[in-house]
Design a protein around this nucleic acid. Structure first.
Lengths: 250, 250
DNA sequence: AAAAAATGTTCAGTAATACTGAACAGAGTT
DNA sequence: AACTCTGTTCAGTATTACTGAACATTTTTT
């Protein structure tokens, strides 16, 4: 290793930002320092800097920090350059209305599912903003649909990594998951049988970019009793049909 | 000034990220280095670091960079902790339907308008994601409604700064704008008379947090012919009425 | 096709600064 | 009032981020 020109202080600072999550939106100096095994004063300086730049907000009542609105703007720039979203939405509406379930669009990003859009049936206005949500590959319909078509070494990497269980249905055995991926490749669609959220089943179909690599997936998702074997097949066919009209775009 | 413990390399790195915009989503090393008057290799190292962290994506065909999907996730965390959005949406729907125009919600953030939501009339599904968009204070309805109620020294700061013209109607004279702010305070609402986008008029009403400081504003906006004096007053009253039902929340 | 210009990339050296670690301050609890 | 837990400050040094020139690669011009 001759030269590592990566800016390490920047990587550290970013790791501070990444401590914040939906579940822990507010964190203090010591909390972050302990978690990252960094010096308190180092974390303090980073937090202060981010705050002065608008990327963190300090709550004066308890001296804790949360992510700042400047991040919304950067996210906005990303989203306004995502043409794929606009292309998919009309199809997702049709899919959602045809089967009466919520339709999701996800992209493969850094070995995770990146949620891009959720469309609800009956032209109900979508209240929930899902763009930017993330989920693991091994226990979601979208994730498994994509994982099945990733490069063998990438699949191996995921299978060898930890496979955290979310429900009692989550597949945590690499061998079992590997078999399921084979089945997904044969079927052309993936089924999430309450593996991420208990009581929710999901059918997902992947789509590919021009170079043949998997790019993302579209799913429909709802209460498990509505997803009997027949409707699973029906929904998979429905999504596949719509994706065929889109394949030329990427 | 005894000690400035702000992390300067971090501020520099962030300034690199902030070069990217909706209009210039893709930038190269030299382009950024020139703009920020930084060394090429310094910028290169920063870009490489951000890329490895997923905050920038490198286009291999032209070696240019664009903002990465990781930023969507940070933005998502911010947005999912913004309860204000969910509180306002039902009222915005009613406002939009009652007057037949688009209804906007904006917050005051760092001397700019931060757009939070846009609701279209006739329960048309909103296609455009506006959360995170920004605009100046001096030439938008939302901005002027808020500016009028900011602290005198903050107002002076904005008035003394540059007031860039967007259309031929933009108020670029600080004295004229100052008078208009007085009028806005008297009326209780602000009117944007094609000052930001030509042909678009807008009526905006501010709202305040418990400590009495201005927090944001709600507006309706549409083609100028539909905004005659009578409907301006009617729309202002409509928004004001809905805001009264919300004031206790903040 | 060759030359020139512009862009991205690498790397050794040093100038800058980010981090350490201990002390202080302040809030909250016992 | 003592204690514990936070956040904050700061001088010193060890780290490392940046400089600047050279190289590589692509694009444009001649």
């Amino acid at each position: 290793m001759p030269n590592d020109n990566t800016v390490k202080s920047l990587a550290r600072a970013v790791s501070v930002l990444e401590c914040f999550s939906q579940k822990e939106p507010e964190l203090g100096v010591t909390e972050i320092a302990d978690r990252l095994k960094m010096q308190k004063s180092t974390v303090y300086n980073i937090l202060t800097t981010f705050q002065s730049l608008g990327y963190l907000i300090k709550n004066p009542s308890n001296n804790k920090y949360q992510l700042g609105y400047k991040l919304l703007h950067l996210g906005y720039i990303v989203s306004s350059n995502m043409s794929i979203r606009q292309q998919f939405i009309p199809h997702m509406k049709q899919i959602a209305n045809a089967c009466g379930e919520v339709c999701y669009l996800g992209l493969l990003d850094r070995m995770e599912v990146l949620y891009v859009e959720a469309v609800y049936p009956n032209s109900q206005i979508q209240m929930r903003n899902i763009l930017g949500e993330r989920a693991p590959l091994h226990c979601t319909g979208l994730g498994k649909a994509m994982l099945a078509h990733m490069k063998p070494e990438e699949i191996r990497e995921v299978l060898s990594g930890p496979l955290p269980g979310f429900t009692k249905c989550t597949i945590t055995d690499p061998a079992v998951l590997s078999n399921e991926l084979e089945e997904i490749r044969n079927n052309g669609y993936a089924v999430d049988n309450m593996e991420h959220e208990f009581g929710i089943r999901c059918v997902a179909v992947p789509f590919f970019s021009m170079d043949g690599s998997v790019m993302g997936a579209v799913s429909v998702s709802g209460p498990s009793p509505r997803f009997d074997p027949a409707s699973v097949i029906r929904n998979a066919a429905l999504i596949t049909e719509h994706l065929q009209g889109l394949q030329h775009c990427f």
